[in-house]
Design a protein around this nucleic acid. Structure first.
Lengths: 207, 207
DNA sequence: ATAATTTGCTAACGAACGTTAGCTTGTTTA
DNA sequence: TAAACAAGCTAACGTTCGTTAGCAAATTAT
């Protein structure tokens, strides 16, 4: 049913011609899952976005959950790569936290839809992927916790429960995908800088 | 199928005996929607939680969406009541923001499951409820924006995009439901105080 | 030129979905 | 005591769901 396929989708498909069909499929799925949520998105919705029949999707994928799983773990790896570069640098806790916040922000902004799916839809993964995902998430948070604990030990930061502080900071960062507008006033770097400024000021000891 | 009903549910039903059957139904739905998400929760799941048949639910409700709608708008009203008390007080912007943050925090902590549904599942509302909900949400945010703009005009706060600041602060608050543990170290009031301290320090001018 | 791969189709499956109709039973109200 | 209501049941409806089987055409690789 070609008439149901929007011009926008055609344009995108042409622009991103280098993408394999499977990649195009996962891109369309990412946008669909972001808009409607995973559970409310049907394979027929997805097929319609691509201008094909639902059954044809299965030439490219094994199951609906496989798509979700690919999106979630690809994003998880992106976040890890970003923080791994920072962890090894020999700088103050404040500087490390600033860079980590900016890096996290950049990953979200570069992948707005995929981040949204990553953040909200992971719970629809089945076992054992679900536990694997949760463990990665915990690892990632622990890297932030270590930075803040270092800052508290250094007297750079106020005495605070580090886990509480991390959850609070990450939750502000993880809201970006809901309001970020590529045509808005703030550039991705400015957003990261403002957020790290607010977060770190919130932690720093006041004289 | 009584064997499928957990002891926990029976206990809860006994403790909250004063609740009408419809209220019990909405309570069970709130927990279910929080755990699995609205779209992934079936009426048969819900019926099973109450130990009755799915068709029996319709003696109490008109539709699945009606349950969601009730949860969302009841919570919206709770948030409004909390902030309306603060708006009219004649205190500094910092003090107003502190009280607003603490009030918001209290509402979430007193209704952890309902807050979770309110924050994540509202998008499954149909029109015209959906637009009505979005408008209320915008109104609520605008009350926070006004407080911060007042603080910027007063030189209490740094010069910052007020909407950006509000979205950042609210997103940290709106994450509480994911980690709050009634048996944890921090009391509801302490959580509110810590969060307002972090948020307001992040906004205040540093000398 | 031929074989293999990619990409799609139609038809259909069994299961699960939200919901309705019509009925029974126990409790409360007039 | 009779009427009204609350709360549940069984049976079933039409629809949508994710997915499979088997086949056809086009493209790519050998």
């Amino acid at each position: 049913m070609l008439t149901n396929v929007s011009l926008f989708n055609f344009e995108r498909m042409i622009i991103e011609k280098k993408l394999s069909r499977k990649e195009q499929l996962e891109l369309a799925a990412t946008e669909l899952f972001k808009e409607k949520g995973y559970a409310a998105s049907s394979m027929r919705d997805l097929a319609n976005k691509l201008g094909i029949e639902a059954a044809s999707l299965y030439s490219h994928i094994k199951s609906k959950e496989e798509i979700l799983s690919n999106i979630c773990f690809r994003m998880a790896n992106e976040f890890f790569e970003a923080i791994n570069k920072i962890e090894i640098e020999n700088i103050s806790a404040s500087a490390k936290l600033e860079r980590a916040i900016i890096a996290h922000t950049q990953v979200i902004i570069k992948n707005v839809s995929a981040s949204s799916v990553f953040l909200h839809e992971w719970r629809h993964l089945n076992q054992p992927k679900l536990d694997e995902f949760i463990a990665m998430r915990e690892d990632y948070q622990n890297k932030f916790i270590s930075i803040i604990e270092e800052g508290i030990a250094n007297d750079e930061f106020i005495s605070i429960d580090a886990k509480f502080a991390v959850l609070t900071i990450l939750s502000s960062l993880n809201w970006i995908h809901n309001w970020y507008d590529p045509n808005g006033k703030m550039s991705p770097l400015e957003i990261g800088q403002q957020l790290s400024r607010m977060s770190i000021n919130g932690l720093k000891i006041r004289f």
